[in-house]
Design a protein around this nucleic acid. Sequence first.
DNA 1: GCAAATGTAAAACGTTCGTTTTACATTTGT
DNA 2: ACAAATGTAAAACGAACGTTTTACATTTGC
Lengths: 174, 174
Amino acid sequence: MDMTRKLTAAAERLFDRHGYMATGMDRLTDAAGMSSRTLYKHAGSKAALMARVLTERDRRFMARLEVRTVDALFAALEDWVRVEGCRGCLFLRSRAETGGDTPGIAEAVAAHKEAFHRRVGEVVATDLGREDPALAEQVLVLFEGATHAAVYRGAQTVSAAKAAAAILLERARS
Amino acid sequence: MDMTRKLTAAAERLFDRHGYMATGMDRLTDAAGMSSRTLYKHAGSKAALMARVLTERDRRFMARLEVRTVDALFAALEDWVRVEGCRGCLFLRSRAETGGDTPGIAEAVAAHKEAFHRRVGEVVATDLGREDPALAEQVLVLFEGATHAAVYRGAQTVSAAKAAAAILLERARS
DNA sequence: GCAAATGTAAAACGTTCGTTTTACATTTGT
DNA sequence: ACAAATGTAAAACGAACGTTTTACATTTGC
């Protein structure tokens, strides 16, 4: 059973595929297979549900980025888009849809992006043997770019980003 | 006066800042300074208004990308974010918000992204002196990445992308 | 100078929204 | 075994949605 997990999973799927605003509560109750009363007991509100979806997604996404090389970073993204598809970044999309002024959501997005930025910096430092914030920023841009370009160009953008990152890294090494 | 232009401009501003779904028609009539009857005479429907906003934005955006070097491409993006701010790509956001199944909108997005892809290929070819689809894809990824990373990292992502693109181009030349 | 066109203001349309409530069935811990 | 907890089904809530309509004022072209 575990209604909470079932609800969160169903909500993530619907929010990701159709958008936060466009997804009504009745569609959520249907997909989660529960009454609206149970949904509200577990979720509190639609915004709180979205915030919990984002927190859960952050956990799942960041777990995949526990790597030691920039190459593995993009390999992890290749896996991710193979499993989850190419619909852009749910965090940025949530923030944009809510104008950035829905407390729980804006904070979940900020926390995720900060953690993501820190992780990229760590991976670049580990791979290169020293800190290089400028290179890390470039790798972050490539990662974000691959994620969003993949929406209309397909998963090939991830390999393009991976190859570009390899060149930048090689140059930073010599 | 020119109600149509005033409406389109007001709509672009509101859709961009608060999202398509979250922007109600009364907020649009207020911002455009016209009655709902006049709005519907000029726009037809909310979705048609969004489609027209996107078509108009495509015109304005692509006009800025009439350049001959990759460096100028990113300089144009720097100008754009300075004028328009960093809220991600309105085209991708519109598509995501509507699940990709609102006819006029999905087509405007597809047309824009196809034109954008073609333009990047042309600029790379002009700058390099020959076609290089793989490099063009990387430049496109950097452009898209700078646009979206700027939402939380600020406009500095555009200079990071510009520097990265210069390295990739230099390498492709030798 | 008078129709046609174009505008406003505001009410009303039916629908759908997120959320709460009522009434009742089933499980569960002690 | 019995009370508390947890679930369902479904109606109801007021508010807001996108859109249309009614009634009237102003401009505009011939």
